[in-house]
Structure formats: structure tokens, C-alpha cells
């Protein structure tokens, strides 16, 4: 099987978020990383390739973005992806990202397309579903387990009150969430070294209207500073929890 993993390039989760005139994200000085949800699905795809090489022919990563996203693509190659593709575009809304991906994927043949459940910047949670619609193939959302047993794809997904296990025919879009891998894979020194020799292809994006206009951004209210109460002073702690925080 050929797996394609869609990776988004997002600000590091510890980034101090700022906006320009509350209209656009201020990216000055921001460190960019692979979207953590995408990184988990990528990790699982690579784990499968390493443990069941007979079942997984290749793992390719794809990103819709500008040249500065290539550091994240190369990290994915260092983690173990076989090759990378960047669709050159500065598009940012979910619809146009899914459209750009679908236009490229329609010309290629992948058995499973992995997406993270959402991105940690805009939290849209919609690219995977839209992509499947554009490609007219099924999608399975909230996947927390992915296996290939006797040549058949088996996934587990969360449903109300529990989980369901599905056997899925390819091709399909797998929308992964927490649990699909334990934690993101750390690239090894050998992986970082061999990433230099792996192919990173850049293709031009296609014309596409953005359907979303960002009107305004608001930052959440600043959190109050942490207050430390001496361990002996339980009375003060209870008083604060009761009268100030009003949680008890």
C-alpha cells in the first residue's frame, strides 16, 4: 500500500500568539513545527512501514504551503517518510487547502491518505473530510488505532460512549487523533543524515478561491499568575478556592 500523509506547518505550541491589527497572525520570530495531530498520524504510518514492510510500499508526506514549510517536510523525511511534496501556495483556509491537495492526489494513486483530526493553529478540523469529498472516496474520522491484518485495513474510532472497530476498503482518507501513536517519533541522527538524500518535490498550486475571510481575532483573557500557598496554610487555600475561585 502507498500511504500519503498530509502535514500542516503550524506555530510551535509554546509560541506567544500576536496579531497585526487583530486582522492577521503575526509570524515574526515564530518557530514552526509539524502540526502535532499530523505528526502522530505520520508516526503511525512510519511505525507500520518499519514493522510491516511487506504491507506498506511507501510513505509520502505532502504540504500545502510556502518554502518556509520545507523545514517541517524535511523533519518528516528525517522521521522516516520516503519522499515529500510541497504544493507551492500561500492559501490558508480549509477549503482551499483540501482543494489543492485533491487536485494533486487525483493525478496520483495512494491507498490511504492520512490527515490529523485538526490543526493546532486554526482548529478547523475540516480538511480531511473535505478532501475525501473532493476525491469522492470514503473517510473515517477520529481514528485512534490503525493496523493492517492479513492485508486488510482495520481501524478503531471513538463513538459516543465507546469505540468501534472497522475494516475499511482502500482508498480512503484516515483522519487520525490521539491514540493512533503513543507519541511523535523523534528523528534519529541517521534519519536526519539520510533526509538530505530524499526527494522533496515542489509543484505549483492551482487557482482556487478562498471561501473564508478572517474578520477579527481576539486573544483570550490573560491568566492570573500562579499563586503558591504554604503547605501549612490549608485554611487560606480553602478560603481562596471557596471565595475567590468559587470552585468549592
Amino acid at each position: 500500500m502507498k500511504i500519503l500523509v498530509c502535514i500542516n506547518n503550524v506555530p510551535d505550541t509554546t509560541t506567544k500568539i500576536k496579531f497585526v491589527d487583530n486582522k492577521a497572525f503575526d509570524s515574526a520570530g515564530v518557530q514552526w513545527i509539524i502540526n502535532p495531530w499530523d505528526e502522530l498520524t505520520l508516526t503511525r504510518a512510519i511505525e507500520m512501514k518499519e514493522t510491516q514492510p511487506a504491507d506498506i510500499e511507501s510513505v509520502t508526506v505532502i504540504n500545502v504551503g510556502r518554502a518556509d514549510a520545507e523545514a517541517s517536510i524535511r523533519k518528516a523525511l528525517a522521521i522516516g517518510a520516503d519522499n515529500g511534496i510541497r504544493i507551492n501556495s500561500d492559501t490558508s483556509d480549509s477549503y482551499s487547502v483540501a482543494f489543492q491537495l485533491s487536485e494533486y492526489i487525483a493525478k496520483e494513486k495512494y491507498d490511504i491518505i492520512f490527515c490529523g483530526i485538526e490543526s493546532s493553529d486554526y482548529n478547523g478540523g475540516s480538511v480531511g473530510g473535505m478532501l475525501a469529498e473532493f476525491l469522492a472516496i470514503p473517510s473515517v474520522s477520529s481514528v485512534s488505532m490503525f493496523e493492517i491484518k492479513d492485508g486488510k485495513v482495520v481501524v478503531k474510532r471513538e463513538i459516543d460512549g465507546g469505540n468501534e472497530t472497522l475494516s475499511v476498503q482502500t482508498p480512503f482518507v484516515l483522519i487520525g487523533q490521539k491514540g493512533i501513536a503513543i507519541e511523535p517519533k523523534i528523528p534519529s541522527m541517521r534519519g536526519i543524515m539520510t533526509a538530505r538524500t530524499k526527494q522533496l518535490t515542489v509543484v505549483e498550486g492551482v487557482a482556487c478561491n478562498q471561501l473564508i475571510e478572517f474578520v477579527d481575532f481576539d486573544l483570550p483573557k490573560a491568566k492570573a499568575a500562579c499563586r503558591k500557598i504554604d503547605a501549612e496554610n490549608v485554611k487560606e487555600l480553602i478560603d481562596l478556592l471557596h471565595n475567590e475561585a468559587k470552585v468549592i
Binding site: 523545514a71 524535511r74 523533519k75 523523534i186 528523528p187 541522527m189 536526519i192 543524515m193
Partner: peptide, 17 residues
């Protein structure tokens, strides 16, 4: 370089995780 930063991050991730 990009590689040096990747190594730094890999070491940081290993240490913290």
C-alpha cells in the same frame, strides 16, 4: 543549519519526554 536545529530539537524532545 536546518539539520543542526533538527538535532537540537531531537535532543530536547528526548530529554523532556
Amino acid at each position: 543549519t536546518e539539520e543542526q536545529l533538527m538535532i537540537q530539537q531531537a535532543a530536547k524532545d528526548f530529554a523532556e519526554r
